[in-house]
Simulated scan of single mutants.
Amino acid sequence: MVMNVTAVSPTATGWITAYPDGQQPPATSNLNFTPGRTVANLVTVPVVNGKVDLRNSAGTVDLVADVTGYYSAAGTSTYASATPLRLLDTRNGTGARQGVVGPDGIVSFQVNGVGGVPYGATAVVLNLTVTDPTATGYLTAYPHGTNRPGVSSVNYTPGGTVSNPVVVPVVDGRVTLYNSTGSVNVTADLTGWFSA
């Protein structure tokens, strides 16, 4: 299963480990956090008994797990990795208009046919980065022309730079990003794609 795991309001410095249900937790972290900071990370974890387990190392923390995809033994999709390529940069106008994305703002950009992504690609793997946010908020990545889901892809606080990998379905050859609050600059770097 592929999911975006978000730690909300942690009370201590720690980490979250995602692992198959009922198995011994590995000695690794999937998401690291510090007190009071909301942070997310994309996690791929095997499913056992229809479940995955999340283990917190320290303090208390609220967790949000948003499923973004899954792998099936009978699946027909194939994954192709890409040499990292910047598809979007609002600071200089790469892929979309130049300028910050304001509150409740959206920006859409072409992915199919760019950087080797075939026109038949059904989803892309991107590393999204938010820079210079003016408020605490989040960015949501979703398929172009569809209803925006009520989930976050990248969580940010004022003045910082934060990134997170995402897997986003492609519709009409495009992907859309939504900014919740304040103004932000956004970059999207291609790392791979899925084709049917």
Rank of each mutant, 00 (worst) to 15 (best):
Q23F: 15
Y19C: 12
D66N: 14
T11S: 15
V64Q: 08
V64N: 08
L126P: 00
P84L: 03
Q110V: 07
V151Y: 07
P26C: 12
T60A: 14
G93D: 05
S77V: 08
Y142L: 04
G116K: 09
P84S: 11
G159D: 05
V114I: 14
D89P: 04
V124Q: 07
V2A: 13
T13N: 15
P143A: 14
P20K: 13
P103C: 05
Y119V: 13
P25K: 09
V151K: 06
V170I: 13
G116P: 08
W15M: 13
P84I: 04
F109I: 08
I16T: 09
Y119P: 04
G145S: 11
P26W: 11
V64H: 07
V117L: 10
A58H: 08
V64P: 00
T122W: 02
S81G: 15
G69M: 05
V43N: 04
F194E: 01
R174G: 09
F109H: 03
G93I: 05
V151C: 02
T6L: 13
R174I: 05
W193D: 01
T161G: 13
S57M: 06
V130A: 07
S9R: 14
A7W: 02
P165Q: 10
T11I: 14
G137S: 10
K51I: 02
S9W: 06
P133R: 00
T129Q: 13
N56L: 15
V167E: 00
Q24S: 15
N4C: 08
L128N: 09
R55N: 13
Q110W: 00
S195N: 07
T146G: 08
V125C: 06
R97Q: 12
N179H: 06
A27S: 14
V114W: 01
A141G: 04
F109V: 07
A135L: 03
T44M: 05
V167C: 06
V154W: 01
P46R: 06
N4Y: 00
V166E: 02
G36K: 09
N41P: 00
A73T: 14
T90C: 11
L31E: 00
V43G: 05
D104N: 11
V117W: 04
T161P: 02
N127A: 13
T76F: 02
N112M: 03
G160M: 04
G173I: 10
L126I: 02
N41T: 00
Y142V: 01
D104T: 06
T78C: 05
G159K: 07
A121Y: 06
T94D: 01
D132Q: 07
M3R: 04
L177D: 04
A196H: 11
T94S: 01
L63N: 03
V117M: 11
F33E: 04
G14T: 11
V168P: 05
S108D: 10
G59F: 09
D21C: 09
A65M: 12
L42Q: 10
R97C: 01
T60S: 15
T34C: 00
S77M: 12
S9M: 08
R37S: 03
Q110L: 03
A12E: 15
V124A: 10
D132H: 00
S152R: 05
T191K: 02
V175S: 04
F194L: 12
V5S: 08
V48M: 11
V171W: 01
S195F: 00
T90R: 07
A188C: 11
